[in-house]
Design a binder for these strands. Structure first.
Lengths: 201, 201
DNA sequence: CTGTGATGAGACATCAATGTCTCACATGAG
DNA sequence: CTCATGTGAGACATTGATGTCTCATCACAG
């Protein structure tokens, strides 16, 4: 045997994340194999992207499982979810933009399922009174992935440190940019970052 | 004369927004002209994208001018900015993802300028005590454009109504998803004293 | 009407990415 | 050693998008 399929996929994901138009030859080089070998494992660019999509879906599902979106306060579940999704941020960023190309084509049911699970989390939070009622679960779901993509980009471009990824996204997502007397992002039981900016006057 | 250059650009923007790989032939058809004519106005795909980029920059600058980011509460300035940016959301969404392809190449200085102006707004808000200090202006700027892109996508896909565009983005951006005793979105200028014992736990 | 200018349609060559195939080499099993 | 397998390198044809050019048509100014 040869060529660790998973290694190839991850290399491809890393490369395509910041150069989505990379040639198959470039993808192969990035993985340390020849174009011929790459083609032996993935019939073509289409197949490669599909495989990446499958990998992304797989990681999202795994992240969702690990984040236990049904447990405890919804806000904490969101924090855990972002935490679990962080390793896949680059790949997701790529797929997020790539998916817009599939406009019109039928969306992979895997995404629909993930979308549903995340939406369910936001719905639960809304029902429990934790989340605002004027922001729909659908929008929050879309926004979450959008922010993850933006976050991955910011970190990649060096405008922010990797260690701030989780904080940036979770805090903006949950608490917003406005400073409040009572920081909305107080931890509901879980000890995440606690860089409370001493909201006092 | 013939072919309203501006019309062609806007058609192209609309098409490329949801199919970024559209053929020049498709772009031409979308604008209601022939590929030959399209080519007479824009030397090639490269030139076309550049023109779209220039248009996007122009609209952003105009939006920034109209939003008076220096006036009044920073939060209100953000609201005005999103309002002014809304018509260009589709175009921005396209450029936002497209820009990631130019990774490595020198970024158009126009974007740098816009980035700087928006960042300045968030810096101002942070200094005035309106915005949180743990979220950097750079991140908020990136996030704002990311949310605008997400918002444009959600509206385009029909998951949200166009009329909610502004609300969705501004509210999530400023107030976050968490429900608070004193909804941040009601602060349209004057800060109402929030001395509520919102201590969740 | 006539001339000018812009456009639409389409032919044609070019180019880059891709799909396919061959051949030689390296490695490991027997 | 000998064979089977997987791989690297590269040739070659195909395909789709593009750049370029020609020619007929249409609208409008004179």
């Amino acid at each position: 045997m040869a060529v660790d399929r998973d290694h190839v996929l991850r290399s491809a994901a890393a490369l395509l994340t910041h150069k989505s138009t990379a040639t198959l030859d470039e993808v192969a080089r990035a993985a340390g194999i020849s174009r011929a070998t790459l083609h032996r494992h993935f019939a073509g660019r289409e197949a490669l992207v599909r495989a990446l999509e499958a990998l992304g879906i797989e990681e999202c599902e795994a992240a969702l499982d690990a984040a236990r979106p049904e447990d405890g306060p919804a806000a904490d579940a969101v924090r855990r979810l972002v935490r679990e999704l962080e390793p896949a941020a680059g790949l997701l960023s790529f797929l997020y933009t790539e998916n817009q190309l599939f406009e019109g084509e039928e969306q992979n049911e895997g995404w629909a399922r993930i979308d549903e699970r995340v939406s369910a989390l936001f719905r639960r939070g809304r029902l429990s009174g934790e989340f605002r009622v004027d922001l729909t679960p659908a929008w929050l779901t879309e926004a979450l992935f959008g922010l993850i993509a933006s976050g991955a980009y910011v970190v990649l471009s060096g405008k922010a440190a990797p260690k701030d990824f989780h904080h940036m996204i979770v805090e903006l997502m949950l608490g917003g940019a406005l400073r409040t007397e009572e920081p909305a992002r107080e931890n509901h039981g879980e000890r995440d970052h606690d860089q409370h900016p001493a909201a006092g006057t």
